[in-house]
C-alpha cells in the first residue's frame, strides 16, 4: 500500500508539474518572455540503462527534452548571430558519465572550413567550473568563477581538408618540411590544428579573451546531420579532473548553458546564438514511467489507479458524510 501511495504521489507530482509547465510555457509563449533568463527551466539527467553515446541511441527515446530559447550574443561586433532561435536539450547519465544530447534545426550542413570564407556549424555547452563559488557570468565566466566549455565543431569532426579541396589543380611533388616543428600550431598544442583531439574541445575560461584548452581532453562528442537537423551528444565522466572543470554527481544540481554557431551565417566566436544558464539536475532516481519501455501501459495503469483511488476516496467521503448525518 505504501509503495502504491508513493507511486501515486509521484505520478501526481508529475502531472502537477506537467500542468504547471504547460501553463508557464503557454504564458511565456504569449508574453514572449525568455524563460532561461529567469532560470525556471530544469534539464534533468536521469540514469539510463542503455549507452546513450550515439545521437540516435534508443536511450534518448525516453529522455524528456526541454526547449531552450536562444538569442544573438549581446554586444557590439564581433558579437552577433541569433539565426538559431531554439535548441532542444536532453540529458542522461550512464555508468557515472553525463550525456547531453542537443538538437537544432539548421538548413545548411556546414562542415568545411577549407575556403577562406567558410565557417563551421558548432555547438557548445557551458558549466560553472568546480572552483566557482557563485554562478559565473554567462559570458566566459569571471576571475573568481570560471566556466568549463565543451565545444563540438562539425569541421573538426569532418577532419582536416586536403589542399585539393580548394585547389583541385594543385600539384605538389613533395613538401620540403613535414616534421612537426614546421607545423607550429599543431606542435604548440593548438586544438583546432590538431586532428587527434577530435570533434570536441574541452575549454576553460575566466573572462573574455582567456578561453584556453583544459588540461585534459576527455570530453567526447558525436554529431549527426539528418533531415535539416543537427543532433550532437556530448559525454564525460562525472568526476572533473581539476577545479577549473565542471564536476557532476548523482542527486546534485548545477547550471548549464548552450550556444549554437551557424557556419553559413558567418558565425564563429562571439557571433552565435546563446541561451542563459538553466538548471541541470542530475537525478539519482530513474525517470518514473521508464524502465520497461511500456510507457502507455504504465500511464494507463497509473491513470486507472488514480481514478480508482479517487473514486474510493469520494465513496468513503460520501459514506462518512452519510454515517455522520445518520448517527
Amino acid at each position: 500500500m505504501n509503495a502504491l501511495r508513493t507511486f501515486i504521489q509521484t505520478r501526481r507530482r508529475m502531472l502537477a508539474a506537467g500542468a504547471v509547465f504547460l501553463v508557464v510555457a503557454g504564458f511565456l509563449q504569449f508574453a514572449g518572455a525568455n524563460p532561461a533568463q529567469s532560470q525556471t527551466i530544469t534539464l534533468t539527467a536521469y540514469p539510463s540503462d542503455a549507452d546513450p553515446a550515439a545521437p540516435d541511441s534508443k536511450a534518448w527515446k525516453d529522455a524528456l527534452p526541454i526547449a531552450v530559447p536562444l538569442t544573438a550574443q549581446a554586444g557590439t561586433y564581433a558579437a552577433g548571430g541569433g539565426s538559431i532561435p531554439t535548441i532542444s536539450a536532453r540529458a542522461l547519465h550512464h555508468k557515472d558519465q553525463l550525456y547531453v544530447r542537443l538538437e537544432w534545426t539548421d538548413a545548411t550542413d556546414d562542415e568545411s572550413t577549407a575556403r577562406v570564407q567558410d565557417f563551421s556549424d558548432a555547438v557548445a555547452i557551458e558549466f560553472p567550473a568546480r572552483a566557482a563559488t557563485s554562478v559565473p557570468s554567462i559570458c566566459m565566466g569571471q576571475a573568481d568563477a570560471g566556466v568549463n566549455i565543451w565545444q563540438w565543431r562539425a569541421d573538426s569532426q569532418a577532419g582536416i581538408p586536403e589542399v585539393t579541396t580548394i585547389h583541385p589543380n594543385a600539384l605538389v611533388e613533395s613538401y620540403p618540411s613535414t616534421e612537426d616543428l614546421f607545423f607550429t600550431a599543431r606542435a604548440a598544442g593548438n586544438p583546432v590544428a590538431n586532428p587527434a583531439i577530435g570533434a570536441v574541445q574541452n575549454l576553460i575560461s575566466r573572462t573574455f579573451g582567456t578561453l584556453s584548452p583544459a588540461a585534459t581532453q576527455q570530453v567526447l562528442g558525436k554529431g549527426v546531420y539528418k533531415d535539416g537537423k543537427w543532433s550532437v551528444v556530448f559525454s564525460r565522466p562525472f568526476a572533473g579532473p581539476d577545479v577549473d572543470q565542471a564536476s557532476f554527481s548523482s542527486g546534485t544540481k548545477t547550471d548549464i548553458a548552450f550556444a549554437v554557431w551557424n557556419g553559413s551565417e558567418g558565425d564563429r566566436n562571439g557571433r552565435k546564438s546563446v541561451s542563459a544558464f538553466v538548471t541541470l539536475s542530475i537525478s539519482a532516481q530513474k525517470l518514473p514511467g521508464t524502465g520497461g519501455g511500456n510507457d502507455a501501459m504504465v500511464l494507463t495503469i497509473a491513470l486507472l489507479s488514480l481514478l480508482g483511488i479517487t473514486a474510493l476516496g469520494v465513496g468513503l467521503a460520501v459514506y462518512g458524510y452519510r454515517e455522520g448525518r445518520t448517527s
Binding site: A114, I160, V163, F183, A185, V192
Partner: peptide
C-alpha cells in the same frame, strides 16, 4: 600566437592591406 589562434579570421577582416591569410590545413 599559433597556440591561441582559433581561425576566426576577424584579423583578416580588420587588416586594411589584407595581409592575413587563412591556413585551411591548420585552421588558423
Amino acid at each position: 600566437d599559433e597556440e591561441r589562434c582559433h581561425g576566426y579570421r576577424f584579423c583578416a577582416e580588420a587588416c586594411p592591406y589584407k595581409r592575413v591569410y587563412f591556413n585551411q590545413k591548420r585552421a588558423i
